[in-house]
Amino acid sequence: MTAPVYNFAYLDEQTKRMIRRAILKAIAIPGYQVPFASREMPMPYGWGTGGVQVTAAILGPQDVLKVIDQGSDDTTNAVSIRKFFTRTAGVRTTTATLEATVIQTRHRVPEAALSADQVLVYQVPIPEPLRFLEPRETETRRMHALSEYGLMHVKLYEDIARHGHIATAYAYPVQVASRYVMDPSPIPKFDNPKLSNCPALQLFGAGREKRIYAIPPYTRVTSLDFDDHPFEPYRHDASCELCAATDSYLDEVITDDQGNRMFVCSDTDYCEHRRALGHGPIAATQKEPADG
């Protein structure tokens, strides 16, 4: 029994080549889910193995890596994945969005505008946007082939009939370059507009489901909607308690047993950056009452 020796960024070169070939196809066919022979990673399926494999396949020694989960660099899974790459690739890591060349994320798009020198890698649990309407891969694959997306519109319309609104708050389906309907991963729909015409390349990795897909830079991405029910991003109607931001996505934090709550930026780097620039807490009187 000998201790294993791992390659740069953990994956062996053959695996990286296989993933790289899939990434190239994904870029050439925006929004199409390319099957790839996802490997067993030393972390559980569903915990970012797809994102980790994509990051490992693109990462080089010159890269600066940022890892976020729920917008934060300090959530346990983000810490764990960052540590994995520090150990296996020895790359420089950062929490500053602007400094990073590769950003791996779960459930959020950073607030700061991304640049052409950056790649955003999303962790994806269920890559198939039609999966909850049709559980069979054989069927959904046919629907994508024929651009047969009526079922999705029916579902969204049923929501409207029942609730008066499209009842999807996250993982809100998009259409990429007027062709493929795509799952943007479980980001809040607040983040959907950031996917469109983004200067950075966006890659999506689903390890357990063995799919990779991409949105090339400057690609039009539209959220599905109806003329009489246009897509609307949602954010809590409040400002961040720490930096007073009124444009960022907010986390609600429960502060006591009486149900009092407050709001803080979900993107911790954005919040810290603003505070460093002198933006401070808002006056207590502006707080939203507990039963909102």
């Binding site: 067993e40 399926y45 569903g46 915990w47 346990t76 996250y170 479980p186 357990r208 986390d251 979900s266």
Partner: peptide, 29 residues
């Protein structure tokens, strides 16, 4: 079972961004 346990247990991971989005929608409805 490695895939299954990973995905079932991943519900332990933070989901508060999505939950907040859902909460906002539910309050509005």
């Amino acid at each position: 079972n490695v895939q299954a346990t990973g995905f079932v247990e991943h519900l332990k991971l933070p989901h508060y961004v999505d939950f907040q989005a859902e909460l906002g929608l539910l309050r509005k409805l």
